[in-house]
Design a binder for these strands. Sequence first.
DNA 1: GATGAATGAGGGTTCATTCAT
DNA 2: TATGAATGAACCCTCATTCAT
Lengths: 218, 218, 218, 218
Amino acid sequence: MTEPDAEAASGALLNRTKQGRERILCAIREAAIAEFSRHGFKGASTKAIAERAGLTKPQLHYYISSKEELYEELLYSVLNGWSDAFTFDADSDDPKTVLSNYVRKKLDYALDNPGLSRIFTTEVLGGGRSLGKYWPVAVKSTQQKVDLINRWIAEGRMRQVDAKLLLMQIWGMTQHYADYGVQVHVMLGLAPDEPIDRAPIVRELTSFVLLGCGLAPD
Amino acid sequence: MTEPDAEAASGALLNRTKQGRERILCAIREAAIAEFSRHGFKGASTKAIAERAGLTKPQLHYYISSKEELYEELLYSVLNGWSDAFTFDADSDDPKTVLSNYVRKKLDYALDNPGLSRIFTTEVLGGGRSLGKYWPVAVKSTQQKVDLINRWIAEGRMRQVDAKLLLMQIWGMTQHYADYGVQVHVMLGLAPDEPIDRAPIVRELTSFVLLGCGLAPD
Amino acid sequence: MTEPDAEAASGALLNRTKQGRERILCAIREAAIAEFSRHGFKGASTKAIAERAGLTKPQLHYYISSKEELYEELLYSVLNGWSDAFTFDADSDDPKTVLSNYVRKKLDYALDNPGLSRIFTTEVLGGGRSLGKYWPVAVKSTQQKVDLINRWIAEGRMRQVDAKLLLMQIWGMTQHYADYGVQVHVMLGLAPDEPIDRAPIVRELTSFVLLGCGLAPD
Amino acid sequence: MTEPDAEAASGALLNRTKQGRERILCAIREAAIAEFSRHGFKGASTKAIAERAGLTKPQLHYYISSKEELYEELLYSVLNGWSDAFTFDADSDDPKTVLSNYVRKKLDYALDNPGLSRIFTTEVLGGGRSLGKYWPVAVKSTQQKVDLINRWIAEGRMRQVDAKLLLMQIWGMTQHYADYGVQVHVMLGLAPDEPIDRAPIVRELTSFVLLGCGLAPD
DNA sequence: GATGAATGAGGGTTCATTCAT
DNA sequence: TATGAATGAACCCTCATTCAT
């Protein structure tokens, strides 16, 4: 299955607009995402990455310094993408607004960047050895959300949920659309490269989460 | 991280009770689960499996015929385990009972067999090439659940949800506790090999799902 | 192709009449002939020999001391068989009689013991490293025949041929029915395990050789 | 024994004249011929081929894709060489001319390409599994020769021989000089790498065949 | 920049043989 | 005798990387 998503689309766009070196780096990035997300760090081969990028192996090594560095670059780009995307809105203090925005953004990221999302999953599956520096950040960022939710609960604006588990459940449901993309396609009766219609998913997911939090969806 | 779960526990138990060949086969199984679940099929090495099982590579090949066969055996054992575990109760026609039992069984499987669960995840991540025969079964089994849920909805016993998406969301949330075990541990402030206390998770998850379906939890 | 010849036939017979150890040694011999004749010494595997003989590898090694010794035993049994069979009749001094008997015996051996014959061929193909002791014997035995033929020529009882080359040509033509058995079957339109009707071959071959020597066939 | 023949000679020549890649491919070809012809497909090792070609094993695999492909390439090059060489002259309808040319060409091929010739022999000895596509071609080409010979016989221009067996006997006698090269050297009292003087062999062989066909040699 | 070539380690697997039992 | 198991070498091949050019 080729990536029928924003990763490839933006790649294609860049291929047309950028020049030379940039173009190649972009192709390498795409190829690396495809291979690492399918086979994990150990299982991916530089040969496959090179071929997918239309390069020979020595050519690839001209642009990257090592397989590991290429991998970690991608991994950090996921982490950065997430820390940008997965903040609670600062503009609003309304649980319904904040939570539904959060769900939507998380799902958008998964559907727009399934490859990158899956790379993070393979890393976690493999034990998360490269994530040492990430965990404290993630924990802190989670704790902030937990604190906010707990305040809402204390203020009686939300059902009494375990905030940490709530966040995990949202994570699980949204990440699922990236990690289990193949199964989702099968279950929805879609061809492997047919794009998923995300509107109904966003709707269902939001209602589900809000109701689960004791909030009435619109 | 060694498996802090029923897989290892039962393995250890068997190691003490079973004899010779059985013991070794069991050690190989455990080792293979550990390696495949961490690195996927391509990324796992028979050397690592052999060492983890306390064998040399040629010794390993005395007991198994090939890496691929060993892998597929494990994969099928997940699929069989699932088709056993993830049926809706036939005894009950009560949405609340059926759904909360389903959620609990699904979560139990993930927490009791995280390694096997993750092997399935790596397979799906890799494109699910070995799952050709499985999809039709999975689709059919899902459809039966969807039909039942839709009947409940038609009978006004449940909120009007998209049954397929509901099942996916349950899948995502429960599977998360296997695939993202490492992250879950970090977030809950547990040591890597500390067991997860599943009671609160079951409670939260069940309430969450029932409320999300418009059913009042007990 | 299983051997449709005296080797197998006598093997089967022995299997019924001999007991235990003898029977097994016989099965090993047959199996070894089949494997060595197909793949040569290096290419044959003790596993294949053991399986063909209905034994396990350790069982096989209980009866033989090494692959090499088993091979050399067979090789020497060819050499002995040949030194027995391929003498010129001492009873007759008639070129026609002697040569036609020789041709017939040589062909009979090839058709009755194709496996053994082919083992010798694989050995020669491989450089004949194990044949160091054999060559002097063969040379001497050949020289005797050459001397006799030269006498016949000197006496005007035969056309003036190069005796050595004559013997080689006979060797080539008869050995061909063992080494190229597969091709012979194809060319004669026979199924792989169908026996070759040797009468016409003997007839043609004899006439051919006698005419080639300037002798009138009967 | 190194190849004391045109294969090696031309190889050596090319080694001096060709450049880089060509030179290496040539060395690989020579090495592969030497190893496969000695030990057959199963018995030959890529390590030995690599060493003989002055390469390491990974280096070898830079130039070839697999042992099997290398082998089949050589095998097909024999088959092609033969289908070129072993046609009956179209220019002549004279049995004597046609047959003696055929004998000479067949012998030349065997003496010029003993290694390649022997590879075909090892393949036939091993059962000819890779020759499925070749047999029909060979049968057809043989049948054409048989038809011609039978016409000559019908026209009274040749002794009444079994044409198929005649062709086999020619095959056996000529192929013998490749397959049994080692024995031929021993019998003729030549050192292993001393070239065979082919003139007397051609002369004897031709007379022998013509007389065997009831034709008077010149 | 880009290419052909090389390299040493390691991939999965089979080898002939030996050794307890 | 016969079996399950082990062993160390060797099998064919691919790996990530480097180096001339």
